[in-house]
Structures are given as C-alpha cells and as structure tokens.
Design a protein around this nucleic acid. Structure first.
Lengths: 231, 231
DNA sequence: GGTTTAATCTCGCTG
DNA sequence: CAGCGAGGTTAAACC
C-alpha cells in the first residue's frame, strides 16, 4: 500500500461525473490498483475513489496543466468498465509505502443470520405453543425466513429483520399472498419480528393483519448461554 | 490526519460485535476522532471503523496483554452511543501526521435529481403527446417524482430511478392507488422510468399495468447541449 | 432531531 | 455470471 499526501484536484468519469477542487488530501493506493481519496473528515467513505480492479498510469501533464502548476497527471482506469479517476498532482508532501500482506478478515456476530438461528431455536418466543417447521422455507419468489406452526397446527410465516421498516412488511405480504394460494398450507398467518420496528411499519403490518414482535438479541443469546450452562 | 502502519488486532462492540485478528494494517485517525482500519485490498470500505464524533484514548495494556506482546491499547469511544473500537497495537511501523485543512467538497452530476430535471424538460421521451404537470407532485404518502398528462389529457404518474428494482414498482403502486382515489385525476396511469430496469421489476410492473421506460442519461444530456447550441 | 430515500452504494450468497 | 437481500449500511435532503 502506498500513501501519498498531496495537493490535488480529482475528477471521476463513469456512472456519474464528479469533481474535487484543489486541496490537500490523502491518496491511498492499494495493491489491486484501487485508489481512495480521503480528506480529514467525513465518515469512512472517501471523497472520491476507484474500485478494483484498476490500473494507475502516471502521465505527463499537458502544457496547459503545467501552466496551472500540475506536476503529475494520474489516470486510474477501471479494468472492466470505462470508469476512470483523473488526479492532477500539484505538490506531494509525503509518500510512503508498506507491504501489509493479505488480511485474515473480519469475524462478525449479531447479524440477521445469527438472529434467525436464535429465533429458530427459541421459536416459542413468538407464542408458547409454536413449533418450527423450517428456516429459509423456499417459495417461488424467494425463501421465507422462518415457517412455523401454532398450537392449532396453523402455518405462520415469519419475516425477520434487525431493523423493521416498511420494506419488510411488503416482503412478508408478498410471501403471505403466495403461501395462502397453497391449499396444503392455507391459512397462513404472518409475524413480523425485528429488534426494532418503526411506527410506520407497525401500522402497515397491523393494517394487513400481520402481528409484530420485537426481539431482544442480547436476551436471546443469554438464553443459549443459560441452556449451555444447564446442560 | 494521522496515519499509522501497525500490527494490530481490532474489536468492535456496538450494534454488533466484530473482530479482526492480528495483522499489519493502516490506521487512519481523523481530526473529528473517527478511525478507519484499512487493509491492502477490499473496496473503499474499511475493515472496521468508528464514525465521528468519537474520541481516541490510549491506555496501558493489561498484564495479560503485555504478555501477548501488546504495546498500546487504544480505545475509540463513540461520543453519542456506547459503540467502541478496541485496537491492540503490537508494533508500529510508521506514524505520520499532516494537516489537510477543510475540504471544499465534491461536486456531482448525473444523480437522480439530474435525471428528474432532464426528464421533466424532455417529457415527450415518454410519449410524443405528453406534457408536464409538475415535478415532485405532493401526495399524503410523499411526492410523486413527475406527474404528466398524455395526449388524451389522462394523468400519468412517473416513478424515476437510476436503477429500477422491485422497490420502485412497489412505491409507484402505492402512489397510483392513492392518486386513483382522486376524482379530479382519475384514471392515473403509471410509468416506471429508469436507466436500467431489473427483469423482476419489469415483470411486476407489467403485472400491474405499469409501463416501463429505460432512459439514456448521456443522450438526454446531449439533447440539452444540442438545444443550447441551437438557441 | 427524526424520517425518508439515494448510492460510483459494498458485500456476500445462491443459482 | 447475474440477481437478490443485508448493511455497524452511509449520507443527504426534507420536514
């Protein structure tokens, strides 16, 4: 990885056009040819960038550019599209290189998949007479997160989200519409389960006869710990 | 901005938990307290990070950590939440600081707003007898991107996307349902216009009697250039 | 400050 | 390879 602190202006041409006026910035050049242009602010997103695979070509600036003070004209060309990033270098204040090797990568815990696994194991959180049919129940328009049965044997389709908004309710509605055409399952109820449910989503769900359940991930994980300690 | 090349392990605790095993990485420390952990690969997204506002505190490593080779224990604490990033520093290979100042910021062209402006000006792209009623036509559930009339005087609601997927069709459907309750507008047709429309979205739209139109931004911008050259 | 929506989204999985 | 859904989405616009 090469890190350059430089006074530069940057132009992106591709899916859209974007321009950064002259200022001092960090240019991060990665081994795969990608380039990130960062300022001292904003969030993790660079001001401008080129995704890999790409190739950096350092060109001579034109006479006009030299007149404006440009020392180097960098062209970062995407390998598969005609997207490109044009970086005019006015002055380089620092330029360091380091070999970082390949990163072992990030290990996550607490994403939707973990929530789904826990809810499948603790399906009675939705009702103490509930039983699991299966996770990722396949349908023509995609898998239903969880299919369960209540005490009366009626089917229940569960849509699971970490954050429940209107989209999730729409998604569950489409599944319910489809599942209720199946004479072997019909009638199928819907449960919208999430760690947090927005008021608008709750209203829409209620409007469509869909039950809402908020889940406590820490508590659910605690239940597992308790179980594993007991057994 | 401070840039540190270090052998480190990183743990994030907050909305989820995530862990990065020991490896050599770039740590970018910004003036607002935010920290980005980058490897030499991936895309513009850091492996792990803390968003601003945040505060970095350098603590002494515990005896156990010292035994494992940890020299410094960094704690990056979010100012408003209890999210935090714990960085164990094993060895620092480089450490540079630069004052970048405030960035003048990015100027963009070609986002949805530009597309909407162009389509409003060139509404006949949807049909040569079309006329514009207004952009951002207000309704109770939010503004319709464009409202137009066809040659017969019938209303047409246009939902505009750069990339047309199923969500856009759902959105337009909700608008149409509402608009068709208005006796002054009824009947209202729907047009789903995007630079690219996914097959699934096209199928759903067709199923609901919504017309799909793909737009060529470059051509539309070219039309303006042509006009401005003519007049 | 909350809410909604776009994004050069990125990332991972599945068929 | 495309398509689809999740994301510590992030970030900007609007109310």
């Amino acid at each position: 990885m090469r890190l350059v602190i430089a006074d530069c202006s940057v132009r992106y041409e591709g899916r859209l056009n974007a321009f950064l006026p002259l200022a001092r910035r960090l240019l991060m050049l990665k081994a795969d040819g990608s380039v990130l242009v960062h300022s001292d602010g904003g969030s993790y997103k660079p001001l401008n960038w080129m995704s890999p695979p790409a190739k950096l070509h350092v060109a001579e600036p034109s006479a006009e550019q030299v007149g404006e003070g440009v020392r180097e004209a960098w062209v970062v060309q995407a390998a598969k599209t005609d997207d490109r990033l044009l970086i005019d270098i006015y002055e380089i204040h620092d330029d360091i290189g380091h070999d970082l090797g390949v990163d072992p990568g990030l290990v996550k815990d607490g994403v939707e998949a973990d929530l789904q696994r826990l809810l499948a194991e603790q399906i009675t959180l939705l009702g103490n007479d509930f039983s699991l049919v299966r996770r990722e129940y396949p349908t023509a328009i995609g898998p239903v997160d969880i299919l369960a049965r209540d005490g009366s044997g009626a089917s229940v389709a569960v849509e699971l989200k970490r954050r429940g908004d209107i989209d999730g309710v729409e998604q569950l509605t489409r599944y319910l519409e489809l599942l209720n055409r199946d004479p072997l399952l019909r009638p199928v109820r819907g449960v919208f389960a999430a760690q947090q449910i927005k008021p608008q989503a709750r209203t829409l769900a209620h409007d469509r006869g869909i039950e809402c359940v908020t889940l406590d991930y820490e508590e659910m994980r605690g239940n597992v710990d308790t179980q594993s300690r007991l057994f």
